Simulated assay, not measured.
Amino acid sequence: MLHIGKRLKELREKAGLKQPELAELCGWGSQSRISQYENDKREPSLSDLEAIAQALRVSVKEILFGEEESPTATGLIVSYEATDELDAEDYIFVERHDLRLSAGCGNLAWVVHEKDPLAFRRRFINARRLDPKSLKALYVRGDSMQPYLADGDTVMIDTGDTAPKDGEVYAVCFDDEWFIKRIFKQPGGTLILHSDNERYRDIEISAEQAEFIRIFGRVVWRGG
């Protein structure tokens, strides 16, 4: 018996997936197989290991023996020379953007960056019930969200998800500047823009100031 259950669970949670979501990415009808593997009640076959590794965007070797490279927050990124190397039926391409503000938070322009888009397996996107048309990638500026995000990391945001959920991370604009911050909701409609790096102060936005904040979208993926 390989006893890989604990490592498999850690990789799944690092990818932000629940057991049913991972099972769906693997093409399995229920989560029972994942549960059995994580509890070391069953040893996965090679084909199942390959399906899990592909879904988690890691290697089979990492599942079996632990981390072998420095992964991103959601797994290893596979490089490619050009998008035509990848099957458009299997992949979703998300453009990287620069966010340009003009006349405050009311006007913005998503400027496509010159670098190649990010490629995600279509089933990875579908399992999270994301609309590819609402996805945009941005570069992280500064270290205010370390260790969750580092300067130069890339985040993918869902521009269709702008109603703040407590504790989630969003791209927002406030006081004519855009940030990536964790949002906490307070009684009375107050919002706290929280920096994970304790060196930075929180920004408190009262209900009366709500007109001055704009939420661009929730962070649904991050990578370095």
Score class of each variant (00 low, 15 high):
G106R: 09
C105E: 08
R7T: 04
E50R: 13
T162M: 03
P187S: 01
P187N: 00
V140C: 00
E67Q: 14
P132S: 04
R96P: 05
D166A: 02
A55R: 02
L101G: 00
E81S: 12
G27N: 15
V219G: 04
E10Q: 15
A171T: 02
E62D: 10
L191N: 01
V140T: 00
I203C: 03
D176W: 07
D98H: 15
S134Y: 12
W110G: 05
V78Y: 12
V155E: 00
I4H: 01
F65Y: 15
R96G: 07
T83P: 12
A88D: 15
D166S: 03
E43W: 08
E38K: 03
G189A: 00
G224I: 07
D48V: 11
Q36E: 13
E43G: 05
I52E: 02
F216W: 09
T74M: 14
A103Q: 14
N107H: 13
K136H: 15
C105G: 12
A109E: 14
L86E: 05
S134N: 15
R121A: 04
G217P: 05
K61L: 09
R57F: 08
D176R: 13
L49G: 03
I180T: 00
W178I: 07
I157E: 02
G189L: 00
F179Q: 03
L17N: 02
P164F: 01
R141Y: 04
I213T: 09
G223E: 01
Q186L: 08
M1T: 13
K165W: 08
S45Y: 10
L64I: 13
A109D: 11
A73L: 08
S47Y: 10
T159S: 08
D84P: 07
Q36C: 09
K181R: 12
K115Q: 12
R199Q: 14
D84H: 15
R42V: 05
E204Y: 11
D161N: 08
F216R: 07
N126V: 08
G75N: 07
I192V: 12
G167K: 04
G66H: 04
H194E: 02
C173D: 05
A88Y: 11
F93E: 08
I157C: 03
Y148F: 15
S45V: 09
F216S: 06
S47F: 10
A51P: 05
